[in-house]
Design a binder for these strands. Structure first.
Length: 425
RNA sequence: GGAGAGAUGGCCGAGUCGGCUGAAGGCGCUCGCCUGCUAAGCGAGUAUGUGGGUAAACUGCAUCGAGGGUUCGAAUCCCUCUCUCUCCGCCA
């Protein structure tokens, strides 16, 4: 959420920002609603002031055993007016916030301007594409052939976009989760947390999933709870409505959770394989940072995510998302795209963002600056470290052998009792 | 699921038959004084949001789990909800 005062004073900037983000939100009602709200507040607060003063007077008179009948009668009317105005304020405020909650975050100055994916700017790459003496195949063929991924049974058990992992497939997924969590906690200073996989509406609003993206969420029937689409939601909300001490910043958390997404609007896209599932596993990195150094923290966060791919020896590239491709809550986002030789494409495997104050304002997460003075909103950041299912995809496709077997990356072998290869039984 | 107790400022904890309680008292913390170190002592200060005001002084409004109600006036009375604790039952 942006600061009301900021929107009020920079309405043109905000409108231009919306255009740059391909966002068609209509701001025309904002100005009138905002002005009406201020006017109503002014009125009602004056009346309340009157009432407070008079109430004290009545109390005094009563203590002096004087008759306050006239004052009480007069205040009766004032109170009635206050009640009416309060109701009106609430009404106007609701309308106003309906708009404000739908305004996305302001992009950082280093974000390239552009309309789509094609305009994202290249940052760097690491490693190189593996060479094959044969034609590499996509992971779904490898997985089915090795009997470690069972798409048909996943669909039978639940439906499309659900997959049953078997045997070394399941173990590989589990090994990756453990490897990632260990690396981030032991080497990068993150604290591991295991949060609830369902959250309430307020938490979803705090990180920006609601109200705009309700269609993408699985809602629990009969309760106002939602399955999390990412650990970002429960972990960022750890400090919801709290004031942190400056000494607690920056604060790093990592969490493994399954993620549940409806993938509304993606019908027909990536229907084969593990790429786009309704349920997938992810190890997430979340940071709470001092606004002064949140962009340094973003670079470090990105490096932490990259280190996993490097340890697995997977070729990837990093892109800086352009204004048109940037997520709703983010000020700046780097995507890490891993090379998938079976499909001949780079696919997003991690998304690392700085949200600046946007989520902190919604979730009301503040800190006391060391210089003293008023509390300020922290900056929140997060990134995948990494999406586990897509990492399995990358491993299968990059390390496939001509005979259909797959070499297990060395760093994972300790997590698999020394296994070096997945081959057909 | 049943029975009961509770939710007050950074923490602990008062709030009597509704009014002088944004909130006593204590602890903690900050600044100053004092004391040759440590400890103790003394004085002052110490919530958040939002508005006015010169980014000051000062000042309006709101906030005692959340929402509603009664009243001129609610931390205090009534209703609903949420959460916490204790006991019983059930359960991985």
């Amino acid at each position: 959420m942006l600061d009301l005062k900021y929107i009020r004073n920079n309405l043109e900037t905000v409108a231009a920002m919306l255009k740059g983000r391909n966002n068609s939100l209509d701001l025309s009602a904002f100005k009138a609603l905002d002005a009406e709200r201020l006017e109503l507040l002014n009125k009602v607060e004056t009346l309340k002031n009157q009432r407070n003063i008079c109430s004290d007077k009545i109390a005094e008179m009563k203590r002096a055993k004087a008759d306050a009948g006239a004052e009480i009668t007069a205040m009766r009317d004032v109170s009635r007016q206050i009640k009416e105005l309060d109701a009106k304020v609430a009404e106007v405020e609701n309308k106003l916030y309906e708009i404000v909650y739908l305004i996305p975050n302001l992009p950082h100055s280093s974000v390239p301007v552009g309309n789509s994916e094609a305009d994202n700017s290249y940052v760097r790459d690491w490693g190189k594409k593996p060479e094959f003496g044969f034609t590499p195949v996509p992971h779904w063929e490898i997985g089915e052939n090795l009997k470690i991924l069972d798409f048909e049974r996943g669909a039978k058990i639940t439906g499309a976009r659900f997959t049953l992992y078997r045997d070394l497939g399941a173990k590989l997924e589990r090994a990756l989760i453990n490897f990632m969590l260990d690396k981030h906690t032991e080497e990068h200073g993150y604290t591991e947390v295991l949060p609830p996989f369902m959250v309430n509406r307020n938490s979803m609003r705090g990180t920006g999933q609601l109200p705009k993206f309700a269609d993408d969420l699985f809602k629990v029937e009969g309760l106002d709870y939602f399955l999390i689409p990412t650990a970002e939601v429960p972990v960022t909300n750890i400090f919801q409505n709290e004031i942190l001490e400056d000494s607690e910043l920056p604060s790093y958390f990592t969490a493994y959770t399954p993620c549940f997404r409806k993938e509304a609007g993606s019908h027909g896209r990536d229907t084969r394989g593990l790429i786009r599932q309704h349920q997938f596993n992810k190890v997430e990195l979340v940071k709470f940072a001092d606004p002064e150094d949140s962009y340094d923290e973003l670079e470090k966060l990105l490096a932490d995510a990259e280190s996993i791919l490097q340890a697995l020896n997977l070729h990837y590239r990093v892109v800086n998302l352009c204004t048109g491709d940037l997520g709703f809550s983010a000020s700046k986002t780097y995507d890490i795209e891993v090379w998938l030789p079976g499909q001949g494409v780079y696919r997003e495997i991690s998304s690392c963002s700085n949200f600046e104050e946007f989520q902190a304002r919604r979730a009301n997460i503040r800190y006391r600056p060391k210089t003293g003075g008023k509390t300020r909103f922290v900056h929140t950041l997060n990134g995948s470290g990494l999406a586990v299912g897509r990492t399995v995809v990358a491993i299968l496709e990059n390390f496939q052998q001509e005979d259909g077997s797959v070499i297990i990356p060395e760093v994972l072998r300790p997590y698999l009792r020394g296994r070096e290869i997945i081959s057909k039984k």
